[in-house]
Structure formats: structure tokens, C-alpha cells
């Protein structure tokens, strides 16, 4: 009964994952005969490829910003919306809305908002007399990565709010009541009840968002294509361009192997630290 799924998965998921290892040891343009080069691709990527270093740096920065802000906002909004009042339920529906859009749509919408000449953001800034703040959000190497990060946060915060809500609603109400009897301020209630009780949910949100940012592709592809000058390029967008733009299949495979290692190491570190923290409480 498990056979059809197992076969299909083995053939179209596990087998490619393994053959990826083989491709990563080759130099290959996809047309001529592949040439075996051992670990050369990896050596070059790690020691010499400055663009790749920049891109890994971009991805780490992108992850940090998105993970921290998205987790912070979603926890905050979940705390704000935890009671099942009519207005709260309506706001949850509104906040969740971007999640149902396709990433390409989100990319196109934000490309319009960011447009330096007639985009909504700059038009608003100019009408407020803040002409100096009306920047070239996507085409300036200093801002492009952060501009994409903002779109990413806009896109996924609502989904994380819902996950936090499920976690917060399981916190026993008595804990808050007794905290109030003890005269605990709102901050203290957060610090000593909400935060420790929501820690397992935070672990899920952080882990999920981290993985999401390391496999991000669609938004960058539809907003900046990684430009200008690789300033918003991420690992997966670079793998794609390396393979299907530059036809360096072996090299791109080596990049994917490095990405797998990255993701596994990060997942492992997060599991460990969050388990240690879980033990504390």
C-alpha cells in the first residue's frame, strides 16, 4: 500500500538528491561530455568565488532580518489578537490574506509599490514633502536586499500570527489570573507567563522561517532577479542562474550541496539551543 508513493518518491526525490552529489564533482555545460573534477567545484566555491561569498552573506543577512522581525511582529500581533472578539477575528482574516497570494503576485505588487517614479511609496513620501527619502528601492545596491525582505515579511507574517495564536490559546488562563492577583504588570506577565509558555511555538516559527528564507527564490526572481550587482541575490536564485543562465550544471550542483549542509547545520543548532532552553523551564 505504501509502494506507489515510495517508488515515486524514491525515483523523483531521493534518486535526484543522490545524483546531485555526482553532478557536484563534474564540470558540465549540459551539452558536451561531463568532465570529472573531484572536489574542485567545492574548493573554488569556498576559497575563490567572491560572488558566492557575497551571496551567502546576503542570505544570512536576509534570514536574520526576516526571522527576527517576522517572529517579533507575529508574536506581538498574536498577543494583541488572542481574544476571540469580532474585531479581532476580522483583523486575523485581514492579516492572513497575503498568505493566499502567489509569490509572483506579491513580487509584482511590491515592484509597483517600490517603483521610483510612480510607485505608491515614493508618491506618498513626496506628497508628505519627504523627497529625500524617495529612494530607488529595488535598483540601488544598498537597499534592494532589504526591500525584498520587507515584502517577504509582509507576505508571511499573517501565517505566523495564526501559528502563534494556536500556541497562545493553549496557555491556561489561570496563570494570568494569578499573575494579576500578585500585581504583575503587563510586561511581567509577558516575561514570566507568555514568553516561556510560548517558547515551543517560537521554536516552530523560527525554524520554519529560517528554512523558508534559505529556500527563498520567487520574490527575488520576480522583483530584482538578484540585482543590482548581486546585491539581492540569494543562494537558490544563484543556483538557478548558474544552471539555467550560465549552464554550469556541476558548479550549481555543488552550490546546492553546500545549501543542504547549511540548512541541516542550522536546523541542528536551532533544535539544540531550543531543547536546552526548553529544559530550563
Amino acid at each position: 500500500m505504501a509502494a506507489p508513493a515510495a517508488l515515486l518518491y524514491g525515483f523523483l526525490y531521493l534518486y535526484p538528491a543522490v545524483s546531485n552529489l555526482l553532478y557536484s564533482t563534474q564540470r558540465w555545460d549540459g551539452v558536451t561530455k561531463p568532465e570529472f573534477v573531484g572536489l574542485h567545484n567545492f574548493k573554488y566555491l569556498i576559497a575563490n568565488d567572491l560572488t558566492f561569498h557575497k551571496i551567502v552573506g546576503n542570505n544570512i543577512r536576509f534570514s536574520f532580518i526576516v526571522v527576527i522581525l517576522q517572529t517579533l511582529f507575529s508574536l506581538l500581533f498574536a498577543i494583541f489578537l488572542v481574544k476571540n472578539t469580532k474585531s479581532n477575528i476580522f483583523l486575523r482574516t485581514v492579516f492572513f490574506f497575503p498568505t493566499i497570494l502567489s509569490s509572483v503576485s506579491v513580487g509584482l505588487i511590491w515592484t509597483f509599490l517600490y517603483n521610483p517614479n510612480f510607485g505608491f511609496i515614493n508618491a506618498t513620501l513626496k506628497s508628505l514633502g519627504l523627497n529625500s527619502l524617495a529612494l530607488n528601492w529595488l535598483n540601488d545596491a544598498r537597499f534592494s536586499l532589504y526591500s525584498v525582505a520587507i515584502a517577504q515579511i509582509w507576505f508571511h507574517t499573517g501565517q505566523m500570527v495564526v501559528i502563534y495564536l494556536a500556541g497562545l490559546q493553549q496557555i491556561p488562563q489561570e496563570l494570568y489570573e494569578s499573575a494579576e492577583v500578585d500585581g504583575a504588570s503587563r510586561w511581567h506577565q509577558f516575561r514570566y507567563v507568555t514568553w516561556p509558555m510560548a517558547l515551543p511555538t517560537t521554536a516552530v516559527v523560527v525554524a520554519y522561517t529560517t528554512i523558508q528564507t534559505f529556500r527563498a527564490f520567487d520574490l527575488v526572481y520576480s522583483m530584482t532577479q538578484g540585482g543590482p550587482m548581486n546585491s539581492s541575490d540569494l543562494i537558490v536564485t544563484n543556483i538557478f542562474n548558474m544552471a539555467f543562465g550560465a549552464y554550469k550544471f556541476g558548479y550549481a550542483s555543488a552550490e546546492s550541496i553546500i545549501l543542504i549542509i547549511f540548512v541541516l547545520v542550522i536546523t541542528w543548532i536551532q533544535r539544540r539551543t531550543l531543547r536546552v532552553k526548553g529544559g530550563e523551564k
Binding site: Y13, N20, F217, I257, I260, V263
Partner: peptide, 10 residues
């Protein structure tokens, strides 16, 4: 654990 995106080339 392995994001599907790393499989694009194979």
C-alpha cells in the same frame, strides 16, 4: 529536511 529547491538540477 532537504528543501526541494536543491533538487532542481538533477
Amino acid at each position: 529536511a532537504i528543501p526541494g529547491q536543491v533538487n532542481i538540477i538533477p
